[in-house]
Structures are given as structure tokens and as C-alpha cells.
Design a protein around this nucleic acid. Structure first.
Lengths: 149, 149
DNA sequence: ATAAGGCTTCCAGTGACTGGAGGGTCAAGG
DNA sequence: CCTTGACCCTCCAGTCACTGGAAGCCTTAT
């Protein structure tokens, strides 16, 4: 199976398959003419990686998962630990993004969004330490921003 | 004010301040000896950018926001549109990550995590077409979503 | 005079691809 | 036999927003 068919079969771009070979995730054989020949085992590995990637695992984690998958004497604890670590990473990202969303959606709601220049979004971005605890104790000079056309 | 003090004042690494100058976000003056001299306006711009970055805006969006901030004849609609676009982008990321989390947390729960090799996580990753209409399912091919927060 | 620390520039690397140039290979049609 | 077009190959550069490090100049203090 050539790279084009493999790409279609896995849903991954051919460029990505070449990249995955380059970093050693798959090792397709080569035909006489230099074309990569993807065997069934290569397709399975690629599908495995594609699904792990879709769950947000990094390439290095995919490499580890692939090795664990192929190691019959693995301990499921190792797999679970990897997944749990990644899960916590995802939870962190969700928390960060949710905080951003909450702030942003308030600002977007507050902004009139018309042809006037008055804009709470810019005002908020320009405010020093508006959300921190005890903002009044800061020694920075609260100068109005210099507006220049 | 030298770069070190500016870094401390803004909470940004000195390297980042140099980078921001390189890409034209700030334009600090230079002393005779070649050292960057950060004025109050530079600090304000940097603080503005830092807060926009903390809300997840890209550098190019920050550049646009800075320009809007400094443009007295701006329309708040332009600011709001930018923020709204970014907000939708964030919502998408949250949705992607939440789907990942849901799938992963089910798998982590199902995995014994002991010294046996039997592991539902690997089984799931290896399964083609395993998902029904449960949470985090999708009919489209497993293109890894671009979720780099 | 020397040492420490701050500043400068330039180069390289990160993750996971993606786009493109420049060229080889193959099967079908004229 | 020749051409066309669809494949395939490798290599290089770019993405985003920094980050690390090397090599060297500047300032301050001892």
C-alpha cells in the first residue's frame, strides 16, 4: 500500500505519515522504486497513534503508549499513570481557558460594539491590577494612557 | 529604566521584552551604551500586551488591540468583534478539551492500574470504530484537533 | 585590577506538523 | 515512442511565541 492509500485509510495527511516515519513512529518498508510500502501492522500503528493524538496525547506519549501496547508484559498501571497525568494536564488547560472565557465574555457583554470609541474591553486591558487582591497598595503611578492618532 | 527593571515591573522575562521589540510591539529608546531605555509609555504598552496575552489573544491580535487602544477614533465595534472572534475560538478549544477529558476519564476509571497487562485504555486506542453515540464521540476521522493553549 | 552581574547580538531549538520547490516513477492514451 | 497527469521522493523553510545559550561589551564595587 502506497502512502496515498495509507493516508486515505488512516485519515492522516501523507505529509504526516512521512513525518511519523522520520521520527520513528512507524517503519514502513520500501519498494524498489523508493516508495514507502505500508503493511497492515503499519496501518494499525498509525490508527492507534491517530486516536491517541485525537485524545491530546503528545507524540512522545504516543510513542510510549505504542511501546506499552506492543509489550505483552506491561503493567496497566503504567498506562493508567500516563493517561492520568495527561488528564490532569487537560483539566488544567480547561481551567485556564474557562477563566479566560469568563473574563472575556463579561467584557464582550459590557462593550456596546458600535461606532463610538468608548470600550470597556480596552479599558480593562489598560487597567493595572484591576482584579488582584488589594490593588490600591501598588506604588505604580496611575497615569492615563497616552492616546495618539 | 533598563530591561531588567522593566522585566520586573511588567512580570515579563527580559527575553520576551527583547522579542517584543524585535517584532515591533514596543519601541524603547536606546542609551549611549546601547542599552534599551524603557519609558512609562513602553511599560504601559507592555502591561497592556501582557494582559491581552493572559486572555489568550495572539501576538497579532495584541498588535491590533494596541493600535485600536491608541486610536482615539476607533469604533468599539472593531474591538468587540476581535474579542468575540477570540471568545469563540476559546469556546471551541474548551469543547475539544472537554470531549477529550470525558473520554479519558472514562478510560482511566475503567483501567485497573495494577501489575496486570490487561488495559481498557490500550484496547480502546487500538479499537477501530469502537465508539457509539456516547460522550466525546465524533463521526469524523481522527484529525487531532489543534488545541495548543 | 578584578570579579560579578547586567546588558548586547546572534543562533538554535521547541511541537507537530505544513507548504513548496525540484525532480523521479508509473500507467494510460495518442 | 512520447506525453500527460497523478503519484511519489527528498530537502528546506515556515509556523507561534518564545526560551536557552554562547560570546562579548558595560557598569559597579571591592
Amino acid at each position: 500500500m502506497n502512502i496515498g492509500q495509507a493516508a486515505e485509510a488512516t485519515g492522516l495527511p501523507a505529509k504526516t505519515l512521512r513525518y511519523y516515519e522520520e521520527i520513528g513512529l512507524v517503519k514502513p518498508a520500501r519498494d524498489q522504486n523508493g516508495y514507502r510500502r505500508f503493511a497492515t501492522v503499519d496501518l494499525h500503528n498509525l490508527a492507534f497513534v491517530a486516536r491517541a493524538r485525537a485524545l491530546g496525547f503528545t507524540i512522545e506519549q504516543c510513542r510510549t503508549l505504542l511501546a506499552l501496547w506492543q509489550n505483552k508484559s506491561r503493567a496497566s498501571a503504567d498506562v493508567r499513570a500516563l493517561a492520568l497525568e495527561h488528564l490532569e494536564h487537560i483539566e488544567e488547560k480547561i481551567a485556564d481557558l474557562t477563566a479566560m472565557r469568563d473574563t472575556l465574555s463579561v467584557l464582550v457583554t459590557e462593550c456596546a460594539g458600535d461606532d463610538r470609541s468608548d470600550c470597556p474591553i480596552l479599558t480593562d486591558l489598560a487597567q493595572p491590577d484591576r482584579r488582584g487582591p488589594d490593588a490600591a497598595s501598588q506604588a505604580s503611578p496611575p497615569r492615563p494612557p497616552r492616546v495618539k492618532a
